[in-house]
């Protein structure tokens, strides 16, 4: 469903992604690990379509369409959605507004009618319960005053309501306590299906115990330098990244 070929991207004139290849098929869960500053969040930003990232070479196909030609909102509606490493606070916009506006935008793109208020509230309450979030969160401004862990739960809540085909999770585990990690992981696992893909960026093996990936990649210096199965995470935990960087340089 996602095919990235030879992707080069610049930020503020600096080349960050330097020939990145990655393919995700429906039903697969991929994890990307790698040192700080390697370009992991840059990749997620390029996928989501954030301003300020200049793609200088390569292509990205999402379900066969040229992703780089799509507007930010069209990517989301087509089913590619990013859970942010640093979720943005949006003072004054209630969570419930965001969820509803987003869901209706997606439905409109599919030619469906707007969801009826009772059906919407039922759906949202169900997902809130799943994320073990109080319903007061619905009427709070998006992420405003949320703790770090609450912000991450809120990102996954959005994923559960919007059900993207490809969910990209940038360090969804950072700042979570043990219980919250389990809730978040259960949430992500509930999204897994034959049709959907997940791309999760993480630094920690622990997340991968809860959300077991099919494939693990190591992103270093703007490229995928190693791809393996879940045992790769254990090896990285034991040996760090240096051995890979050296092997890659030679």
């Amino acid at each position: 469903m996602l095919e990235i070929k030879g992707l080069h991207a610049k930020v503020e004139g600096n080349e960050i992604l330097k020939g990145l290849d990655l393919t995700i098929n429906p039903g697969e869960v991929h994890a990307i690990m790698g040192p700080n500053g390697a370009g992991k969040s840059t990749l997620s930003a390029v996928l989501a379509g954030r301003d300020g990232y200049e793609v200088t070479a390569g292509e990205i196909l999402f379900e066969g369409d040229n992703l780089l030609e799509m507007e930010v909102e069209d990517r989301a509606r087509a089913g590619l959605m990013l859970a942010f490493q640093y979720p943005v606070e949006i003072p004054g916009v209630k969570n419930v507004y965001l969820l509803k506006a987003a869901l209706n935008a997606q439905r409109a793109a599919r030619g469906e009618a707007e969801i009826e208020a009772p059906a919407f509230m039922k759906l949202v309450r169900e997902k809130l319960a799943q994320m073990k979030m109080d319903k007061s969160f619905l009427h709070r401004a998006v992420n405003e005053g949320f703790s770090g862990g609450e912000k991450k739960r809120n990102e996954i809540l959005q994923m559960l309501v919007l059900e993207p085909k490809l969910a990209i999770l940038d360090e969804i585990d950072s700042g979570l306590d043990i219980d919250a990690l389990r809730v978040v992981a259960d949430g992500v696992n509930s999204l897994r299906s034959e049709q959907r893909g997940v791309l999760m960026i993480t630094h920690y093996q622990r997340l991968l115990d809860y959300i077991v990936p099919d494939v693990i990649h190591v992103l270093a210096d703007g490229r995928i330098v190693k791809t393996g199965d879940k045992s790769l995470a254990l090896e990285l935990e034991a040996r760090g990244y240096d051995w890979l960087l050296e092997a890659d340089a030679s």
Binding site: D51, M81, L82, F84, I90, G92, Y97, A101
Partner: peptide
């Protein structure tokens, strides 16, 4: 603009995103 992007990244039209933030 970060908030505009965050809303758009959930599929909300840019114009609606700006409207929501104005109302906010």
């Amino acid at each position: 603009e970060n908030a505009v992007f965050a809303l758009r990244a959930r599929g909300v039209d840019e114009s609606v995103a700006r409207g929501l933030l104005t109302l906010a």
